[in-house]
């Protein structure tokens, strides 16, 4: 289905709701943290767009900056962070917006769900009350209307007997149910963009499958754009329309999902894909691909490929000149871009 025609018109994949105009547009986003040991560059010149109804996955390993990117979109970073660049949500600039303004936007047009639902829910209030609170805060509806809307939302996210569940406390629900409640809260105000930071990492596989189905379904049905932060390539393969691969704070490759898995160009992407045991593969069939070395912590972003020291194809050029994220092939819309001087697809460079 999705991505089966990777070369052209990637935008057509992203549901009928797509207008070709992004709801969320991130340009040259950079984040630097001040720490005791000096400044640390966590995100460097990250740009991407998300359209309505589209699921964009941001993947990478710990320390790649994917979570920092997610937090910076809604202004959730601590004061020690310096954010530059531009984040446009339907034309509204979020970088540099006041706390008051951001609070109004978060939970309304921009919603978050996190890995561990228990820490995001208040244990002393019923789930219904927590959803009602969000609705009344952002939409100023009456208590009664909010309550019936809460039941609707619980129904929407597939919670059985929602009229009863609405009066239960978070501890009375299982992990999967709690994550559904979190999704219901996030959807309460009909957000344009839902940022899901490792939403299924804490869940069992059988529960994860149901939550992923729910997210995909909601994105298509409500036209919500989803930014999915994950380390799990299986999750990406399952529900993402497009993928952004991050390494050491930079985007190293971005492509429609099928295209990325079929023809990865950056050597970090190929390494990552080769590291996962695929179905039917045995240890006796050969070793899994390893990526030697560690992710660097950078104080300044060098004019070089930050993956060069771990890359099997690196040359002097990689160490002295930063590869650009290759230009768009399609005017108006990006198809497959990668920041590599010696892409895995081009044989003469290997």
């Amino acid at each position: 289905m999705l991505g089966s025609q990777p070369q052209t018109g990637g935008g057509k994949n992203a549901a009928a709701a797509s207008t070709g105009r992004p709801v969320l547009s991130v340009r040259d986003l950079s984040v630097t943290f001040r720490t005791e040991e000096g400044s640390v560059s966590a995100v460097d010149s990250v740009s991407f767009d998300v359209e309505a109804g589209e699921v964009l996955a941001v993947v990478g390993e710990s320390g790649c900056g994917k979570s920092v990117t997610a937090m910076s979109l809604g202004g959730l970073l601590p004061r020690s962070a310096t954010v530059t660049g531009s984040v446009l949500l339907e034309g509204t600039e979020l970088v540099g917006a006041s706390d008051r303004q951001l609070r109004g936007i978060r939970g309304d047009d921009l919603a978050y769900i996190f890995q561990e639902p228990m820490t995001s829910l208040n244990p002393v209030f019923t789930v219904g009350r927590q959803i009602v609170e969000v609705l009344r805060l952002h939409q100023g509806v009456s208590a009664r209307a909010a309550k019936s809307r809460a039941v609707e939302l619980l129904t929407l996210v597939g919670i059985p007997s929602p009229a009863r569940r609405v009066d239960e406390y978070p501890h009375q629900l299982s992990g999967g149910m709690r994550q559904r409640v979190m999704i219901a809260m996030a959807l309460a105000c009909g957000p344009k963009v839902l940022i899901a930071d490792e939403p299924t990492t804490a869940l069992d596989v059988t529960v994860q499958a149901a939550i992923l189905d729910l997210l995909r379904d909601l994105g298509k049905r409500l036209g919500t754009a989803i930014v999915l932060i994950t380390h799990d390539l299986g999750v990406v393969a399952d529900i993402a329309d497009r993928v952004v691969v991050m390494y050491a704070g930079r985007i190293v490759e971005t492509a429609p999902t099928q295209e990325l898995f079929d023809a990865p160009q950056h050597h970090y992407t190929t390494g990552l894909l080769g590291a996962v045991p695929t179905a039917g593969r045995r240890a006796s069939d050969g070793r899994l691909q390893e990526i030697p070395g560690l992710v660097p912590v950078l104080t300044v972003q060098p004019d070089a490929c930050t993956f060069a020291e771990r890359c099997p194809a690196a040359s002097d050029r990689c160490r002295t000149s930063r590869p650009p994220l290759a230009p768009e092939e399609n005017p108006g819309r990006t198809v497959h871009r990668f920041a590599c001087w010696h892409p895995a697809g081009s044989e003469e460079d290997r």
Partner: peptide
Amino acid sequence: QALLSAAPLANPREQRARQRVLLRGDI
């Protein structure tokens, strides 16, 4: 059968072609 079908494969074509069993409720 349900467990094996629920674990996502790191391959979009295979993963999306799969018939997945969704179990009711929780453990």
